[in-house]
Design a protein around this nucleic acid. Sequence first.
DNA 1: ACCTGCATGTAACAGGTTACATGATTCG
DNA 2: CGAATCATGTAACCTGTTACATGCAGGT
Lengths: 184, 184
Amino acid sequence: MSLPHAILTALLEKPSSGLELTRRFDKSIGYFWSATHQQIYRELGKLEGEGLIRALPAEQPARGQKKSYEVLPAGRAELARWTAAAQDPKPLRDTLLLRLRAAAVVGTAGLEADLRRHLELHRRQLAEYEEIERRDFPPERNAPEDRLRHLVLRAGIDLETFWTQWLSHALAEFPEPPAGGETD
Amino acid sequence: MSLPHAILTALLEKPSSGLELTRRFDKSIGYFWSATHQQIYRELGKLEGEGLIRALPAEQPARGQKKSYEVLPAGRAELARWTAAAQDPKPLRDTLLLRLRAAAVVGTAGLEADLRRHLELHRRQLAEYEEIERRDFPPERNAPEDRLRHLVLRAGIDLETFWTQWLSHALAEFPEPPAGGETD
DNA sequence: ACCTGCATGTAACAGGTTACATGATTCG
DNA sequence: CGAATCATGTAACCTGTTACATGCAGGT
């Protein structure tokens, strides 16, 4: 029950068409909530049916025609309700940790290369976030309306920092020891 | 495509029935890959059909009868293959960050209480992990076959540490400022 | 006229969640 | 015998993923 609220947030920030939303879900919003265009169109239809958003009139409701949406008061109310409602944190579900645990049983052969690749990917993501921070939140301007957005970005930076450090640590004690539990 | 491999790993560590697996997915394995008993039974059926595991014979295949499974060689091979195969990290998808971004638009009313609750939950989880670390991985015994398991636990500890720190930081600059973008 | 790119969709499927159903065992 | 508990399962649904379909606009 989060995708509709992600879309409401995006549309409140700026009314958009499906494709524009898709583009924005590949960038800023997608940093913590990704979605494909198929999901977005499906959800836009639902939200419109529920009266939370409406299409801006542009005459043609035809197929290849751009169609922009804006949030209705009911949509804003629903988003505010959802934002304030108590929600339990979802338990972690991470493939890489699972693979490490599996490697303890079937052996580590071949795993190291992918760990290195992940490390490189996380380093790149971290650099990208830090670049955004430099650009959008320089130390001097600390406007209160930026605080929440900066906080979200900090979470991204800290998470990528965690992954790079943890992967470095993992790789450090990886290559040399035979690491128990081979194919027996 | 991870649940079957989580189950294979669990069964290699110790052959079990569906319910026993469910219990283990509420503890150690569930710390990074959770699953309900419905998922587990469904997946056990599939894995058996594919010849990766088999039921230990106990005469009754009846409904209320315990049924234990063990991993076949094909299952072990598949797990080794999957563990070594390259996989892209899944993009982050976090509700709390989304709610913060939404709060930047519709206002922060009511959010703070749930942030406090999350902080408390993460603190508890962190304490639990640290307790496990003290119990299972004391500094003196550093057996090589424990290394990978310890590494996985460290990831859990570091992640919970991140959340507690980030949430503390978030709450610190939260209460006082009016935080732009109220219900207008 | 044709091709490429933009834009909106449909369909089928896989994985996860929730609610419920059924049989066996144990304990009062 | 009845209730509680253990154990295995079914069914319906929701979300997310992948592959494909359709219409329009602009360039050559």
